[in-house]
Amino acid sequence: MKVLSIAVNTFRENLRDKLLYNLLIFALLMIGSSLIFMRLTLGEFHRLILDIGLGSINFFGVLIAIFVGIGLVSKEIEKKTIYTIVSKPVARFQFLLGKYMGLSLTLLINTAIMAAGLLAVLHCQDVPVHAVLFKALGTIVLEFMIITAVALLFSTFSSATLSAIFTLAIYVIGHLTPDLKAFGQKMEGLGRTVLEGMYYILPNLERFNLKGHVTHQLDVPVGDLLMIAAYGMAYTAFLLMLASVIFQRRDFR
């Protein structure tokens, strides 16, 4: 009940934030712009719409996850609104979980709106929609969950600006982890250990990228999908637990 109240309040806060609407409008404009770009290409315009559409949903969703996520806790501490929450019979992990769930709900609804925009464009151009598109949208949401948890983790101990930089760095590196591993395998000794360690510790965000499958209409087996979901949820749970441990020890001066 307490977690739910905090989640609903966070969701309400997000809804009253102009940043969210600006990003959402930009995302919809980008998805719509594929209609213009397709006139500049010869054939394969189905792929272009899907590529731009999924890319926009991913990019703007990540922007929302980072820029709203970093403020989830640090803004509460800076504005001292946290004083009236922690002084109630609310455990600190309940506060964190509520904030996380609130932003996750916002992202879920945003993704649904952006996906509706993409489906409308596809429908207008008579592009057939395959099940793999929805699977790709599902994994995009899982990626948002991880990025939000990363932003939340950093915002429990650093300022909003630093949290944004760290989260953005994790997002970029997270998409390059297969390269890290490949690079590490070409090295010896400590360099190899460090790069392989990074490969296993950092989130492998490329696992959630099914855009190639969608544009080439390749289906993803349910087993693979379940593995991706389990990985995403386990990684998110780990990040949230780590955030809780750090947050539990903090003094709110």
């Binding site: 806060e13 504005k79 001292k80 609104t81 004083y83 009236t84 002084s87």
Partner: peptide, 9 residues
Amino acid sequence: FLPESPYFY
């Protein structure tokens, strides 16, 4: 509890 110079949502 009412904090000093309270800030609210």
